[in-house]
Design a protein around this nucleic acid. Sequence first.
DNA 1: CTGTCGGCATATGGCCGACAA
DNA 2: TTGTCGGCCATATGCCGACAG
Lengths: 695, 695
Amino acid sequence: MRKEAEKSLDPQLWHACAGSMVQIPPVNSKVFYFPQGHAEHSLYPVDFSSSPPIPALLLCRVASVKFLADAETDEVYAKIMLVPLPNTEPDLENDAVFGGGSDNVEKPASFAKTLTQSDANNGGGFSVPRYCAETIFPRLDYTADPPVQTVIARDVHGEIWKFRHIYRGTPRRHLLTTGWSSFVNHKKLVAGDSIVFLRAENGELCVGIRRAKRGNDTGAESGLGNGNYVSPYGGFSGFLKEDESKITRKRSPRGKGKVRAEAVVEAVALAANGQPFEIVYYPRASTPEFCVKASAVRAAMRVPWCSLMRFKMAFETEDCSRISWFMGTVSSVHIADPLRWPNSPWRLLQVTWDEPDLLQNVERVSPWLVELVPNMLPVHLSPFSTVTPRKKLRLPEHLDFPLVEQFPMPPFSGHPLRSSNPLRCLSDNAPAGIQGARHAQFRLSSSDPHLNKLKSGLFPSGFQLFDPQPRVPNGISMTKHTDSNDDNLSCLLTVGNSSPKKKSENGKRHQFLLFGQPILTEQQLSHSCSTGVKTSVKNEDKRKDSSNGSGSALENQLSPEKSFTTRLLWRQDYQTPEPGSATGHCKVFLESEDVGRTLDLTVLGSYEELYRRLANMFGRERSEMLGHVLYRDATGAVKQTGDEPFSTFMKTVKRLNIRMDSRNDADGRSWLTGIRTAENRLEGPNKRGPLSIFA
Amino acid sequence: MRKEAEKSLDPQLWHACAGSMVQIPPVNSKVFYFPQGHAEHSLYPVDFSSSPPIPALLLCRVASVKFLADAETDEVYAKIMLVPLPNTEPDLENDAVFGGGSDNVEKPASFAKTLTQSDANNGGGFSVPRYCAETIFPRLDYTADPPVQTVIARDVHGEIWKFRHIYRGTPRRHLLTTGWSSFVNHKKLVAGDSIVFLRAENGELCVGIRRAKRGNDTGAESGLGNGNYVSPYGGFSGFLKEDESKITRKRSPRGKGKVRAEAVVEAVALAANGQPFEIVYYPRASTPEFCVKASAVRAAMRVPWCSLMRFKMAFETEDCSRISWFMGTVSSVHIADPLRWPNSPWRLLQVTWDEPDLLQNVERVSPWLVELVPNMLPVHLSPFSTVTPRKKLRLPEHLDFPLVEQFPMPPFSGHPLRSSNPLRCLSDNAPAGIQGARHAQFRLSSSDPHLNKLKSGLFPSGFQLFDPQPRVPNGISMTKHTDSNDDNLSCLLTVGNSSPKKKSENGKRHQFLLFGQPILTEQQLSHSCSTGVKTSVKNEDKRKDSSNGSGSALENQLSPEKSFTTRLLWRQDYQTPEPGSATGHCKVFLESEDVGRTLDLTVLGSYEELYRRLANMFGRERSEMLGHVLYRDATGAVKQTGDEPFSTFMKTVKRLNIRMDSRNDADGRSWLTGIRTAENRLEGPNKRGPLSIFA
DNA sequence: CTGTCGGCATATGGCCGACAA
DNA sequence: TTGTCGGCCATATGCCGACAG
């Protein structure tokens, strides 16, 4: 292919387009490069078989960074040249060695707006929010009647766009008229895409675009215009990739804007040889960054990660207007892909979310993406709290554990499961200093002075634990399981559950989209269904714990039967019983759809009944189910229904995936026919009703 | 990149789009593969340095052929899988060994029309030529008033287009109305592009497009609508490539529709290993076919090519409506690139054309592209004669020389210049049988009975040598050099010149475009200017001839001073004097422009004067000329003005190239803005007056 | 026979204030 | 404050016969 003139664009404009959570490591700083993450960043499966053995992570120096934009789509991406560093570097070396320049250049004035239907479709006008007009645009002469000016903006390619900016109407408002629709057409913008205006340092106005990650058409009915989709920071790509590739194909059929598999192999080969190599990173691809600030990785790996640890993680709404923190619990710590990447910390943590439905497909995260929070009553921060990710919540000094193992040498040599045993990791390795932290983590109670100290820093002001009317707008609604034998717990659950209903009843609510899948809050789903996601791993851990027969006080403290707080955690987040348990609820995912439905296995006595039930549930023929229902058995292996006796199946199954032949492939051409057509298509035959249908 | 579904399209439609001169070798036939030609087919320089040594040509079997079309531009191309064959194959083996099936499937009814301005621009209608409507379209019911129908056609991707076909107006004519402009817009057609309608064997109507090779905007003023540009068959790519890349970039900036350099290297590597490999061939790329029917190559190499041999070569008008034969003379026979491809017959022949201005950049051709014709009075076939390339003029049997050297082993081992010595090749190697042919070649006179025999076969019927009103519509106009010392010659020249003027004076004339460069007939240029192209090589040959001291009768016959016919050839085609001669005319090419202008060097006394003259000529600053004027010195090396003393420069220079920084780069985006804009651009600031300005 | 033009009907684009959320 | 709508004007689109080459 032709080498385009790789003109690095204004880094500020680039960042404005990339979103506020994207951080590109500065030149000369040190990062860890993760081939695994690089592979995830590629749309296509990456075959490392021909490569030499590669370390799972590689310390590198950032030799150069180019901020680029796709010539066709304006999608921003970065080319980063990395120089592998010898592993002899001292472990705790300061990153500042290379003098990573002052990254703190102040952000220029910028404004982003997600296009409404009116902005994108009708009459060719754009409603300029007052703030944007007054702070970003050139000053308008309000003495004129009407006040008008021509706004000139430069896009990522340096091309100039002119817009008539007028202040008119009753009541008065700012509008872009002439020139706007031409811009929309040229950039092929649709409602839901965002536009970024930025006043550069030289005073010039810049304009960038951020395309909506059109998950699929379901977005249309929830009002694309308001689209407050969640874009995962350090997201997850397993099940989703396929969906995304479909989207990408529609928008740019030549597979641009994504990294080719060969590029990954090539980079990895060079990296393995210790040679400089170049990586391309698409910040809006919804896959986690795979060049991570070395200090961040080191800091994260100093934490002896264990099950039951509580953490929060930042996500960005799709339009980049807000950042949300989601709370979760580490359900298991183990190597994500022990065969290929035996010692990789990448996605080391298996997690469960306080809002599991909101983050359904984020099952594993890398430690440096999350922030530990003291274990306490898991009453959640609002996902809409506006805590910025910059004012990071620093852990108390005594939480800064020493390294569990040597680092950056593989932290989990020998026994991959060793660290995934929470008890061992705490009881065997934890130095005295940890105890204080653990105290804060596990001895937390409303009367504990530590809590008050912490909560003032951790929660929005005014937040009160056990507040009878807690101001938690959209937290998980807690289930009303009555098999609890602990009144205290029930009480707490009730209390925690009393408030959220208030807001959940009126339809208009923030909508989240994660990896192109609409995220429904639990209210939208059901109160009676249990989530049952990712419980087995936890229970495996638990079984192993008991089998090793350790009886330390610590273990007793952590055991569900012995500790109040732990039990609370347990109850709430892992309410689902044992695999194949009495409640026997199971999530069912139809491949072509987005959100799982819940199925009560207890009412079923045979595969035959299951098929009938599933066919009924999805409006398909029973015969279509045969050979299409997949699940993972106790060992994690993928099986089809029928592979095991039904009784065994019943006991192990937690999640079913129904593979369907995709229909309606024929309209691949629609992207050609322009915006308005694409718009209409949203209301076409693919339109579907709400997906939260439960058995 | 994503693998598109490589659906082979209807071969008939493919051929209709590719043009009538394009022949794809049938499966199982044998071809010679030329890496050199493959590299020329790539837009970008191909670096073979990392490859193992490669033979210049490789006998292969055609394993499969896929007829494809670019998803975006509809440009047709072919993917051909070749299997290298061992060199042990007998040399003269018949190609039919593999049973190359009957290639003679009859051509389906098809019709091509070059879009007029009206077709492409106005009102959204398409004037259907009656022939097309009556023979290709479905039968119209003429009893209706007006007769209307919907014509349904399938394009290369199988997509369906509907057009309202109406027969109306006074006088009645066939039109496509509704649906047409949508087609034009989707396919981004502009005036000058062609549309192909074809009735497939199953009765279905197919539609294909052939884009004009828009050299550049000069086409606009000469009337794109009539565009009868010449498209070279087995063209030339040296100087032109750059121009073409500019064009391609404008139309498809991602470099699609061209072969990548790496693809060539990969194919060559496989080929060198004897492994099957795939090549991609774009028939409309104006580079010669590099998989050539083995029998054609063998036949061509049986001819002992020599200087002064006369030949003709077929070219196709750009709209594929006609095929023209151009006559030329072999000026030298030598390896094109002796360093890289020491024994390659590729572009073995250096040629001069009877119409040098029409084929200015075709300087070297491969032997199998040309057809020998007996040397005789070079009065030219009309370029518009409608001789099809199929009814080939077979050479008399006695011209079928035995092999000069073993073949396919390199035919020119040892002394690359050996065969370029016309005397040696004729006098040393020529068997007796040649004499007869040579007699026809050189002993030709109006009274010679051989001539009459030959001319009846070679010339259009009715053609009469020395006819006072010869029916040669557009032959080269002969110059009126008066330094001739042969009255007979002058007479002949006058006679030859008497007719063409008739048609040349009125503006409407066939326009030719070659490699994107408009071709002006000599009338359009000047009568007083000499062409000076490719004279030096000839003269070099001549010098070598005399230096070897042979004094055979043959040489005397060939010497300009001794032979009438030779002298005539010489006078007419090589009227330019020695390099640096008394007339001292020199062609000047501005890089960004298309056609050279002629400069009289004799009036100049210094580089300073030259710069002033050139600046004046092109409306540039004198300072812009410094360091930008390039030429080749006597040895062929590229030099800048100033590298040699002016007097030396004066003696050697035949052609100047002025390199200019291209301005107006900002409109690279114009291809995006649609047809009408592109159309308008043609009349924009780039518009230029006629280019044939002479010093 | 067919390329181009001007006429003209209709569709679309695009600017506007009204209104309401 | 700003998203959406209907009104309405200007322009573009596109079909037509006239005319001429």
